[in-house]
């Protein structure tokens, strides 16, 4: 006797977008319940802001204190922390814990998983940037943009910067060998880039080799872009290129988005075997 096994007719699975939104909700819920993630991702940058901002109050240009320069850099760093750093650390942990393997075994599109991650990154990024802007304005002389043009520039920097940061975080998640070791691999990279990219020091005062090295990576361009939003326009002549280089910034970020996408598609692993 020949059996005839064909697809049973099923009502459709919930849509990819709907499942993605549900994943976003559950990601945020888990994020808020983990003390480490709340402290490191959200509070740590604010603590750094208070420490550096309180110690270095020198004036680096007429009307511009270092703390104001520093806040602009920290806002750019916020995009890297919540996207690249967060994903490059948590995805290897999810791989180690079997979360990813379980998700591959259920009727979920991988797209829904990434929608969930984008929702998590966007939410934590908006909270962090808003906190840095609020504390920076209240305590460290940060001046919020006053023109629509500057707000528009700020918006595209945040959007393109966080897309770049998110995609590179997903791509880099294949590098750490284990979930426990991920933080030890990822955090030093972010900290070194912060030192080299004009967050903790004035970029134009760094050695040329350091500047050249930093110019390969997105963070240098993001900090410079944020300075163009939060510092007086006249400060641009103090930049290395004597200009804000916004066109070049956009180009570098887009190149990294393309590189990161190709890299992520090739390397993303759902299990460690």
């Amino acid at each position: 006797m020949t059996t005839n096994l064909t697809h049973a007719s099923y009502a459709k699975n919930p849509s990819v977008l709907r499942v993605g939104l549900l994943r976003g909700g559950i990601e945020i819920k888990q994020f808020l319940r983990q003390r480490e993630s709340v402290v490191f991702t959200l509070l740590f940058p604010v603590m750094l802001l208070f420490i550096f901002g309180s110690v270095f109050k020198d004036t680096i240009a007429p009307g511009v204190t270092f703390s104001r320069y520093f806040v602009a850099g920290m806002i750019a760093s916020g995009l890297v922390n919540t996207g690249f750093q967060q994903l490059a650390i948590t995805i290897p942990m999810e791989r180690d814990f079997g979360t990813l393997k379980r998700l591959r075994g259920i009727p979920m599109s991988p797209v829904s998983y990434f929608i969930g991650k984008v929702i998590l990154v966007t939410t934590s990024m908006l909270v962090q940037v808003a906190m840095l802007m609020a504390f920076g304005t209240a305590f460290f002389g940060l001046k919020l943009p006053t023109t629509a043009d500057l707000w528009l520039r700020f918006t595209w920097l945040v959007i393109v910067g966080s897309i770049c940061s998110t995609i590179l975080g997903i791509a880099f998640s294949s590098i750490p060998k284990s979930g426990r070791g991920a933080s030890a691999v990822v955090s030093p990279i972010v900290i070194v880039l912060q030192f080299f990219s004009g967050v903790f020091f004035v970029f134009s005062s760094l050695p040329k080799w350091m500047q050249d090295f930093a110019a390969i990576f997105p963070l240098k361009w993001l900090t410079q872009g944020m300075r163009s939003v939060f510092l007086p326009d006249s400060f641009s002549i103090r930049e290395v290129a004597r200009s804000w280089e916004l066109g070049k910034t956009f180009l570098v970020l887009v190149i990294w988005i393309i590189v990161g996408t190709l890299w992520a598609l090739r390397s993303f692993k759902w299990s460690d075997k």
Binding site: A11, P14, T99, R102, G105
Partner: peptide, 28 residues
């Protein structure tokens, strides 16, 4: 349905939240 060897995921969710969440992946 697949029950894997060992998993430690979703440690910060409750049992009910997790089972309820996973029910949303299926058509029926």
């Amino acid at each position: 349905g697949i029950v894997l060897q060992s998993t430690e995921d979703a440690a910060d969710l409750t049992v009910a939240e997790t089972v309820n969440h996973f029910s949303h992946y299926y058509s029926n």
